[in-house]
C-alpha cells in the first residue's frame, strides 16, 4: 500500500475516537508519515538539488553528463514548466509560477499490533515521487515506525502487596477494548484477554501501550505466580510456597551451619553475616552457584527445578507421589516464581 500526498484517506481506522476531542487520534507513525508527505518543494529546487536523499548524483551539470535518459527528460519537464511560467506570468514574476511538488511518497509493507494491542508498528519505505528509483539491494532502506500510548499515571493502590490490579479501568488500551466489546461484552472476558498475555507482553504494554502496572514486576506480588498457575491447575503458586515452608524453616547456612533467619532486602542470610540471594519461587537462600535461572521480566532468580525438588522435605513427598508430581510439573513449567516471566537462561 502506498501513502501519497494525494491520497488523503490512506489511513483509516474503525477504532473509536478518544474521549478528548482535542487529542490527535492518529498514531505517531501516521503523523510522521503525514508530515513527510505534506512537504512541498519547488520543482526546480527538487530537480537541481537532489532533494531526496535517494539520488547519488552530485550537481546538475554532473548528472547531465553521466545520465542521459533520466535527467534529460526531467530537464525537459523543467524547461516546459519554465516556459509555461513565462507565458502566463506577468513581468518578472516567474518565481511565483514555479509549481511545488511533493517529493516523497511512502510504501507500507506491513503493520503489526503488539500482543496487548496498545502499540502499533509499521514498516514503511520512502520513495521519490519524481524519479525512478536507482540502485539495488545496497541502497534500499526502510523504517520501522511506532505508534504508542503514554504511560499511565501512577494510580493509588490499596497497599503495595495486594497483588490485585485495578479491575475498574480496562486493562488493555480502551480504544482497542471498545472495539472488542461487541464480540465479548462480558467484563470478565476483557480481563481474561489481558490475563492471557505473557508477563513480558504486559510489561511491554505498560511501557508503551498504556497498560497497567504488572504485578510481580512493579510491586512484589506472591499472587502473580498463583494467578499464572491457577488457570491450569489446582496447586497454586501460594501453595507451592507452602511446600517449601518446612525447608525454609530448616535451612542452614552452608558456611557456618547457623539458621538462615535474617532477611535483608532481597537477601537472606544467617546471623553470622553470610548473605545469599533468595529464590523467587521458594524463598530459599541460593547457596549453590549455577543453580538458578534469572527472569527476563523482573530480574529475580529462581532455583532450577531439579534443585528445588531435591529441597522438598521427604515427609512432604511421602504424603503422596501425586502431589510431588504436581509440584514437579509446576516447577518444570519454567516460569519465574515472582512474576511469571520467562527465564533468560
Amino acid at each position: 500500500m502506498s501513502a501519497t500526498a494525494t491520497t488523503h484517506d490512506w489511513y483509516q481506522t474503525n477504532v473509536p475516537p478518544p474521549s478528548d476531542p482535542a487529542a490527535d487520534p492518529r498514531p505517531q507513525w501516521v503523523r510522521t508519515i503525514a508530515q513527510k508527505l505534506e512537504v512541498q518543494v519547488p520543482v526546480d529546487m527538487h530537480l537541481t538539488r537532489n532533494y531526496d536523499d535517494s539520488g547519488s548524483e552530485g550537481s546538475e551539470s554532473g548528472s547531465e553528463d553521466e545520465d542521459e535518459d533520466g535527467d534529460l527528460d526531467l530537464d525537459g519537464d523543467f524547461d516546459s514548466f519554465a516556459e509555461e511560467g513565462d507565458a502566463n506570468g506577468s513581468a518578472g514574476a516567474t518565481v511565483l509560477d514555479i509549481p511545488e511538488i511533493h517529493p516523497h511518497r511512502y510504501r507500507l509493507h506491513g503493520l503489526a499490533l503488539s500482543p496487548g494491542g496498545g502499540v502499533t508498528a509499521v514498516l514503511a519505505s520512502t520513495h521519490s515521487t519524481q524519479r525512478p528509483e536507482r540502485g539495488g539491494w545496497h541502497t534500499v532502506r526502510s523504517s520501522v515506525l511506532f505508534g504508542y500510548k503514554p504511560r499511565r499515571k501512577r494510580q493509588p493502590r490499596r497497599g503495595p502487596c495486594s497483588g490485585q490490579h485495578d479491575t475498574g479501568a480496562p486493562p488493555i488500551d480502551p480504544q482497542v477494548m471498545d472495539s472488542l466489546t461487541t464480540a465479548t461484552p462480558a467484563p470478565a472476558e476483557r480481563t481474561g484477554q489481558y490475563d492471557r498475555l505473557t508477563t513480558e507482553a504486559k510489561l511491554f504494554e505498560y511501557l508503551y501501550g498504556g497498560g497497567p502496572e504488572v504485578p510481580g514486576v512493579h510491586y512484589p506480588s506472591p499472587a502473580a505466580a498463583a494467578a499464572r498457575a491457577a488457570n491450569s491447575d489446582a496447586v497454586t503458586g501460594a501453595e507451592l510456597r507452602d511446600v517449601f515452608g518446612p525447608a525454609l524453616a530448616a535451612q542452614k547456612c552452608d558456611l557456618c551451619g547457623a539458621a538462615m533467619d535474617v532477611r535483608k532486602g532481597a537477601l537472606s542470610g544467617c546471623r553470622n553475616g553470610h548473605f545469599f540471594g533468595t529464590c523467587a519461587t521458594s524463598g530459599l537462600a541460593v547457596q549453590t552457584p549455577g543453580a538458578t535461572r534469572s527472569c527476563g521480566a523482573c530480574g529475580l532468580r529462581t532455583m532450577r527445578a531439579e534443585v528445588l525438588l531435591a529441597k522438598i522435605p521427604k515427609q512432604e513427598s511421602g504424603g503422596g507421589d501425586d502431589r510431588r508430581e504436581e509440584v514437579r510439573r509446576l516447577l518444570g513449567e519454567g516460569v519465574c516464581g515472582a512474576c511469571g516471566g520467562k527465564f533468560l537462561s
Binding site: G110, A112, P115, V119, V122, W137, V140, V144, E200
Partner: peptide, 29 residues
C-alpha cells in the same frame, strides 16, 4: 520507542510481526 531504520526492504506484504513477548520480526528481501 523511536524509528528504526533497517538496510533492507521487503518484497512481500505483512512484513512485520510482534511476538507474544514484544519481540519484533521484520522481513527483508
Amino acid at each position: 520507542l523511536r524509528e528504526i531504520t533497517v538496510n533492507s526492504r521487503p518484497l512481500v506484504k505483512r512484513a512485520i510481526q510482534f511476538s507474544c513477548d514484544g519481540d519484533l520480526a521484520v522481513t527483508a528481501d
